[in-house]
Design a protein around this nucleic acid. Sequence first.
DNA 1: GCGCGTCCTAAGGAACTTCCTTAGTCCCCG
DNA 2: CGGGGACTAAGGAAGTTCCTTAGGACGCGC
Lengths: 211, 211
Amino acid sequence: MVRGEQTVFIADDHQIVRDGLRALVERAPGLRVIGEAADGRALVEGVRALHPAIVITDLAMGELNGVDATRQLRAGGFRGPIIMLSMHDERRHLAQALGAGVNAYVHKAHAFEQLLEAIGAAQHGRIWLSPQLAALAEEGRVATLLELLSMREREVLQLLAQGRGTKEVAAQLLLSPKTIEVHRLNLYAKLRVNNVIELARIAFREGLVQL
Amino acid sequence: MVRGEQTVFIADDHQIVRDGLRALVERAPGLRVIGEAADGRALVEGVRALHPAIVITDLAMGELNGVDATRQLRAGGFRGPIIMLSMHDERRHLAQALGAGVNAYVHKAHAFEQLLEAIGAAQHGRIWLSPQLAALAEEGRVATLLELLSMREREVLQLLAQGRGTKEVAAQLLLSPKTIEVHRLNLYAKLRVNNVIELARIAFREGLVQL
DNA sequence: GCGCGTCCTAAGGAACTTCCTTAGTCCCCG
DNA sequence: CGGGGACTAAGGAAGTTCCTTAGGACGCGC
């Protein structure tokens, strides 16, 4: 499956990180970087224009995150390996990333060799995960606090944690403020807190809202 | 001032980033990486043991951050260039970083060439800053958000961000709830927000309260 | 020393939010 | 088809927030 040279497209919102990845990838035999992007939107466009064989993308990026970009790439017909890099070991994003169609999920704290291993595995149609994440993924699922919540509740929690008041959230979701109040009270009950700040704190801690 | 070969020590909490930096640094003539560390504590030890000519360190690291590590390196007699890398353009950390004794402050969104430029400048005893930061630094000081606040205000902010209500904070500080309300309103004005959650978010972001 | 600004304190009262309860619809699971 | 959760929303009491006003303390400059 490995042909003479595989073309690679890199997406990460920090140029120094892209520079570093490019240097590392080009040192690997059989890989050549043909393009890069600083956010998900640019990644999707770049892939559409340049048809790389392999995509390496960061999870957290401005404009469009790696998971959503992956979804768009797959929807757009891209079938090559997509390797997702993550910053923190965001177990909460793993399932989403796999659901979106990534072939490998590599923590930035790992060595570059693992990334190459992930590329190799992906080329052979396998899914590659960082060892500790693989364990998690196999033993079923990791229940996060947020999984206790319904879609709507997560949505409300997210908006509240972004500093929106009850009325504003209601306006945004086209609901009555009274409904949002009930969702808030249910969130307090489910997350065992009793004020909005603790709620926001959980949203920050669980990565639902960027600090 | 540039001798045959300059030894470099790299600190960053993500190994892939370290790998990338190492690849880039080693591609530059006259630079050789002699060690690396994943946190500030290991950086300080590594420098003590290996005596590198140049240190490149990330700002945000577990155990001991880049700024505090820099302070320790300078206190321990290290006189070579220390190049600080930052993730976000954390203007609030710039002043502290310079105060701690870094020679250059480079945003990760910049190209690696800027890092080399920074190293060159530092070797000639100059301070190198990303252009947009240089403007800020020259016009005096970049005040940390929290430096705007009085002692009392920080105290109140901290308690509020811990999820305490106005009444509870008042009880704890032996003040009238009305007084706390006024402090809260002053905090809104000073930090340019208009609800407690944004206030809490600042407290988390600035590290006043542990998430 | 006098004015100025800032900090810290606190009250009144209008405006608004929160809490709690009740309740209707929908849809899935057994 | 009944129970249960999700989602919606209203009424009304209780509580909080916002805004304004205000007084004493302290330091800063002239």
